[in-house]
C-alpha cells in the first residue's frame, strides 16, 4: 500500500476509535474524555505556535476564554442565533489575536512571553469585572447548547463534535505544516535572519501563525463551553497555560504526535498519580520536565521514531 493509503487508513482508524469511545464511556469517563479532547485540541494549536513557530506565548488560554465567553455571551446573554454567535465568537478571536499580534510578534522570546502574559491578565480582569455580562469571578452557568438547525446535539453526539474539533485542528495544522508556510515558520524559529534572506517576511509569518493558532484556541474554548455548561475565569488560568507548555515539552515539541501524546499523558496523569502523590503531582510533572529537557529533548514522540529527526511530523 502506498503512503497515501496508509495515511488515510490511519486517520480512519483514529477517528473510528475516537468516535467509538464516545458511545461506550459512562458519564464520568465521558466527562474525562471530553476534557481530554479539549486539551488535545489546545495542545495541537499551541504546539504549532510554540514548537513549530518558536513563539513563547502564554495567551493560548486567554483566547480560549475569548471564544468560550464570546459564544456564551452572544448566544445566551444577548440572544443571538447560535450559528451567528459561533461565527462571531471566532471572528472576535481572530481579530483580537490580530490586534495583539501586531505589536507582540515584534518581540522576541522572553518579551513576547511577558506581553502575552499581560494580555492574559487583561482578559482575566475584563472577565472578573464584567458584571452580569460575564458573571464576574463566579462565571456563567445555566445555559445550554441550543438545537442547531433543528438538531439537538446531546450526550455522545456532543463528544463526537469534540472529536471533530480535534480532527479539524489536526487536519488544518498538518496541511499548513507540510506547506511552504510551515517551512517558513520553522525557518523563522530556527534562524530569523536566514529566513528573511530566503524571502520570508518574518513579521507577516509570525502574525499569521499567531492569529491562526489563537483562533483555533478560541474554537477549542467554544467546545469547552458546552462540556459542563459552566465557564469561569479559573478554567482559563495561567496555571493551565503552563500545563499546556509542559504537555508540549514532554510530548515532543514541534510534532503533532508529540502534542497529542503530551496532552493525553499529562491530562490523565493526575488521575493515576493523585491516589499516590496527592496534590503533589505537579511536582512529579516538574521532575518529568527537567528529565525530558535533559535526556529527551524530542519528548515522547522521539521514542516513537515515526519520522526522521528534523523532518516535519
Amino acid at each position: 500500500m502506498n503512503g497515501r493509503g496508509v495515511h488515510a487508513l490511519g486517520w480512519l482508524a483514529g477517528m473510528g476509535v475516537a468516535i467509538g469511545l464516545a458511545f461506550v464511556l459512562g458519564s464520568y469517563h465521558t466527562d474525562v474524555y471530553r476534557k481530554m479532547l479539549i486539551w488535545v485540541a489546545m495542545a495541537l494549536g499551541f504546539n504549532f505556535l510554540f514548537g513549530v513557530a518558536g513563539q513563547i506565548a502564554f495567551s493560548h488560554f486567554a483566547f480560549a476564554s475569548v471564544g468560550a465567553y464570546g459564544v456564551v455571551i452572544l448566544s445566551h446573554q444577548l440572544g443571538l442565533p447560535f450559528g451567528l454567535a459561533f461565527v462571531l465568537a471566532i471572528v472576535i478571536c481572530g481579530l483580537t489575536a490580530f490586534i495583539v499580534a501586531i505589536p507582540a510578534t515584534r518581540l522576541e522570546g522572553f518579551y513576547l512571553a511577558l506581553a502575552t502574559l499581560a494580555f492574559s491578565q487583561l482578559v482575566r480582569v475584563t472577565i472578573d469585572e464584567g458584571g452580569a455580562l460575564t458573571g464576574g469571578t463566579g462565571g456563567l452557568a445555566n445555559y445550554r447548547l441550543p438545537p442547531f438547525f433543528g438538531v439537538d446535539v446531546r450526550g455522545p453526539w456532543y463528544t463526537v463534535c469534540l472529536v471533530l474539533l480535534v480532527a479539524f485542528t489536526l487536519w488544518i495544522l498538518t496541511r499548513v505544516d507540510a506547506s511552504w508556510f510551515g517551512r517558513a515558520c520553522r525557518a523563522v524559529r530556527d534562524n530569523p535572519r536566514a529566513a528573511e534572506a530566503m524571502g520570508v517576511d518574518i513579521a507577516r509569518a509570525r502574525i499569521l501563525v499567531f492569529v491562526m493558532t489563537s483562533t483555533l484556541a478560541g474554537l477549542a474554548g467554544i467546545g469547552y463551553a458546552y462540556v459542563d455548561n459552566v465557564i469561569n475565569p479559573a478554567v482559563f488560568s495561567l496555571e493551565n497555560s503552563f500545563l499546556l507548555l509542559f504537555m508540549i515539552i514532554i510530548g515532543g515539541s514541534g510534532r503533532h504526535v508529540g502534542a497529542m501524546l503530551g496532552a493525553v499523558v499529562l491530562y490523565l496523569a493526575p488521575f493515576a498519580l493523585e491516589p499516590v502523590a496527592g496534590n503533589h503531582y505537579m511536582l512529579v510533572f516538574g521532575v518529568l520536565i527537567v528529565l525530558a529537557i535533559l535526556f529527551r529533548p524530542d519528548g515522547l514522540a522521539g521514542l516513537l521514531r515515526i519520522t526522521r529527526p528534523g523532518k516535519a511530523a
Binding site: R186, D190, A195, G310
Partner: peptide, 16 residues
C-alpha cells in the same frame, strides 16, 4: 542553516 529542519527542507525554504 535551519538546525531543526531536514536538509531538503532547508533548501526548500529558499523557494519561499
Amino acid at each position: 542553516p535551519f538546525a531543526g529542519m531536514s536538509l531538503t527542507d532547508n533548501i526548500l525554504v529558499g523557494r519561499h
